[in-house]
Design a protein around this nucleic acid. Sequence first.
DNA 1: ACAGTAAATGAGAATAAGTCTCATTTATTT
DNA 2: AAATAAATGAGACTTATTCTCATTTACTGT
Lengths: 145, 145
Amino acid sequence: MIEDSRKILSEHSVSITNPRILVLEALLEFGNPITIDELQSKLKGAVAKSTLYRVLNDLKKIKILNEFTSPDNSTVVELILEDHSHHHHLFCSDCGEVIDVELSEEFEIMLNKEIEKVQKNFNFEITDHRVEMFGLCTDQCSNCK
Amino acid sequence: MIEDSRKILSEHSVSITNPRILVLEALLEFGNPITIDELQSKLKGAVAKSTLYRVLNDLKKIKILNEFTSPDNSTVVELILEDHSHHHHLFCSDCGEVIDVELSEEFEIMLNKEIEKVQKNFNFEITDHRVEMFGLCTDQCSNCK
DNA sequence: ACAGTAAATGAGAATAAGTCTCATTTATTT
DNA sequence: AAATAAATGAGACTTATTCTCATTTACTGT
């Protein structure tokens, strides 16, 4: 995991530092979208708060980190790995867990057609989109029992 | 517009107060999703900051206000009116404007089918969903020229 | 219309997420 | 291994939102 982290950094010509490795390791280990709060507690104070935010910004800059806000207003981050295909998010309103979901090919095709239409109707250049679903995990979330 | 505001409040058995009327009027008048910053400037100090947030929370509680975070991290609110049908949002990354978009019936049907699948696969009870699109308004936004 | 009571408000203090500053440390280049 | 630029830690700062509490306002029953 340390080696993966080093590799990710060098591939993006970002200097290899301890805080960056620690943050990447934590993200790789968790494997799912994670709130900054959770990330901070995984890091157990090993990285200063200011540095953590700087590292996250660095990772966003090299486009390997995705950041979004969950419905309960916490900031969630997630690594974008090469084998990580286009997906959307499912939020548990109870425990706050965020789960990656892939939707069907047909659905994505249809969504792209809708996006095309919206681009024309509103004279917009649409660069990105997001589908979010909210609800209650009934027993699947790792946080809820 | 004052009368509309009073009606909305009494229909939801919420006491009719000046700050609530002023906030509702501003939202009705603007007619589109609006950032809290913009809302504050429309109110020109007529409502205390703490009261504004309280009123917005009241409106959320009676389910006539929708709140979400725009990609630039500002909080956006929007009234849910009866004649306001199911819709999604289009954000301009440049000027911050948020526009309501309705997608086609067929698309919504297909999306609901996807949601059904996700519910089963993840053993979730999905209560809500959201489609967000981001991009650049090329000349349509009222804020961009 | 009026007094009594509970709810709502204003003003500013408190909180918390995120950014910034600056002196020190670390990584990279030669 | 030295020189230099970049990254870090610690804590100050900023800004959005919530909280506190004394005062005001809206609603209820008479």
